[in-house]
Write a protein that binds this DNA or RNA. Structure first.
Length: 282
DNA sequence: GCCCAGGAGTGTG
DNA sequence: CACACTCATGGG
């Protein structure tokens, strides 16, 4: 089956550390678990070819939701390109889309992401899925829901190589009551962040990642070590998390999340083309 | 061996 | 508030 999502660059969108379970094949297609299916995506011009195992209803809709097909990228780019630093540099990243993950999977994934690199985060999540998630296709397991993951003790989780993050995952399973995440979907960003931060392993940065990639709050602006570098290099901004977040909110407004992802890609040099598309403010 | 990684928690000034 | 220290572990 096919879907029209334009613009879309799968390499940028699925390979940049927003989400951790998609894998790229030699032919440029991407495969990963989405819901209870193993989905494979391949871009062909302006259309996206989709296959799924097992096949079934609603796959295209799930893909469209995951890739935020309804985001008006041109409008977002026009808005952000008014920024004197981002300017026309954002065009090169036009195909990068913010992903919409399942809230639970996103929460646990980014609690695991503390002080680890992306390949290792992927491995930890795969280990969790293999050990506690339902098998949905050969070699692929669903991300375990809260009930299934709650069966794991902190020691079990440490044996999977999670390190001290094992206590975070255990604490989240124990500390999040049923319906907790559902209630959070109706909160404004400030309250959502505070609510998420009551959970172990969730501080400022993880709360912002979960708000952005899990709850779809495009105004959230996660700041990791790469973003600290970018903000200092491009805008001369440094200081506490709070100070930097307030700077970003003021400067980028409702699409701060996209601005963040553009700057993150740019800082890491993960986009094709020249290393730096943005010009530092002087 | 050394340095770093999509940081958080805790204690101290 | 802001800072300093600790927390495990794999990869370059």
């Amino acid at each position: 089956m096919e879907l029209e999502i334009d613009p879309l660059d799968l390499d940028m969108t699925l390979g940049c550390g927003q989400t951790f379970r998609w894998r790229r094949s030699e032919d440029g297609s991407w495969s990963g678990p989405l819901g209870k299916r193993l989905v494979t995506l391949k871009s062909d011009g302006d259309t996206l070819a989709i296959s799924a195992r097992p096949s079934g209803e609603g796959v295209a809709e799930a893909v469209a939701r995951h890739l935020r097909a309804d985001d008006d990228i041109d409008r977002i780019q026009r808005t952000l390109s008014k920024d004197s630093v981002l300017g026309q540099g954002v065009r090169r990243l036009r195909g990068l889309r913010i992903v919409k993950m399942d809230e639970w999977e996103c929460l646990v994934s980014f609690a695991l992401a503390t002080y680890a690199n992306i390949p290792r985060i992927s491995r930890m999540i795969d280990s969790l899925a293999t050990e506690y998630g339902r098998r949905i296709a050969p070699g692929t397991h669903e991300f375990p829901d809260q009930a299934r993951l709650s069966k794991a003790s902190a020691r079990d989780l440490r044996r999977l190589g999670l390190g001290y993050r094992a206590d975070y995952v255990k604490g989240i399973c124990d500390g999040l009551d049923a319906g907790g995440l559902d209630r959070m979907t109706r909160m404004d960003l400030a309250r959502l962040r505070e609510e998420l931060k009551t959970l172990p392993g969730v501080g400022d940065k993880v709360a912002d990642c979960v708000s952005l990639f899990g709850f779809g709050r495009l105004e959230a602006f996660p700041i990791d070590v790469w973003m600290e570098r970018a903000l200092k290099r491009l805008y001369g901004q440094e200081g506490t998390y709070r100070r930097l977040r307030e700077f970003a909110a003021e400067r980028f407004g409702p699409f701060a999340g996209y601005a963040q992802e553009y700057m993150y890609m740019n800082e890491r040099g993960l986009a094709s083309g020249q290393a730096c598309a943005f010009s530092a403010q002087r």
